[in-house]
Design a protein around this nucleic acid. Structure first.
Lengths: 194, 194
DNA sequence: CCTACCGATCGGTAGG
DNA sequence: CCTACCGATCGGTAGG
């Protein structure tokens, strides 16, 4: 597994970083604490002097990523954009978060269902709130006459699903940078391919 | 778990049907053969007189769904459509498969990575071939001047990701039928939301 | 279709 | 950070 190691990194941070790459590759359930320990060249029980449980790692990833996605939208809502510019800015923010945290986003998107209660319900609520933000952006444009959609909810799901797929193929080393990805997505979703 | 049972159904078919709903709800790895047996009111070892292994179920689901998706495109390629009509027909076919096989599609989309070799590689190959079909539809439209896209591959990924998300929220009992879903998706992807 | 059971592996603790 | 170990659970087999 290829994981670059920052210079000053606590053992705890190292555990989280390696766990994220492991969960992304094998899935949360299929990743064992012994797998994780092996990657770190320690024994499994030693992990527990740094973390409380396997699920604690998943919780941290899911909720920190949720916060990061929300944070990206903060500035946008303060400004007086056109509906189109506002949506474009939101798309750029969303894509930047995905590209900067590829593996964590993969875990965030695919493994949240393994959270136990009440974390599961808390997470679903956050996710719905994030979708609602995009809902208001689209609704704003529809009310202003900038957008035309058959169903606002439907448009939101279509937009977010195509944005979220980016984590699957984005490569830091690839020729397409986050800016260009976001621009291309905005173009297709706003103007269409025709 | 709510699963309607067809009148004439072999034990084997029943096992597959219930397994699909189980894998969809809990994930393949987190679903145990004891869970599956319990749903069927038998003991776990009894399953093995009908199936060879847990993975055999996953393999059947993944490859049969792949075949179903391909089959839907067969008619389309024989006709002399405009690029736009051809893409619309492909979208309708894809959405129909998703809506008719919701749970199996969920397993197909999310659990294929747990296939062992050589099935894993075979599956990835099929998936790439299916993407290539959409690639030719888009390329056809670009060459004819019907479509304008910055990057054909990129457009294909955007389209398929938004189509595939449908399995997550579609309900047979909902007001939006497959036909309407496909039409709305076509509209957004071809004309955009503006 | 069952009971009885296999070796392997799981997340995690005790105690140092 | 380790060794030693826990009870629970895993997919699957033997034998009927």
């Amino acid at each position: 597994m290829m994981v670059e190691a920052p210079k000053t990194e606590s053992r705890k941070e190292q555990i989280y970083r390696v766990a994220i790459t492991l969960f992304r590759e094998k899935g949360y359930i299929a990743s064992s604490m012994r797998d994780l320990a092996k990657e770190l060249n320690i024994e499994a029980p030693s992990l527990y002097s740094h973390i409380k449980s396997k699920e604690e790692i998943l919780q941290k990833v899911c909720f920190e990523m949720a916060e990061t996605f929300f944070h990206g939208l903060n500035d946008i809502e303060k400004r007086n954009f056109s509906a189109k510019s506002r949506l474009e800015a939101a798309i750029h923010s969303h894509i930047n978060v995905i590209c900067e945290h590829k593996d964590a986003v993969a875990v965030f998107l695919n493994e949240w269902r393994h959270l136990s209660q009440p974390h599961y319900s808390d997470f679903v609520q956050l996710r719905n709130q994030y979708e609602e933000k995009f809902h208001t952006y689209i609704k704003f444009g529809v009310d202003k006459g900038e957008f035309r959609v058959a169903d606002v909810n439907f448009a939101v799901l279509t937009i977010l699903s195509s944005l979220n797929w980016t984590y699957n193929w984005y490569k830091e080393s690839g020729k397409m940078k986050p800016e260009e990805i976001a621009s291309n997505l905005s173009e297709i979703l706003i103007k269409g391919i025709s």
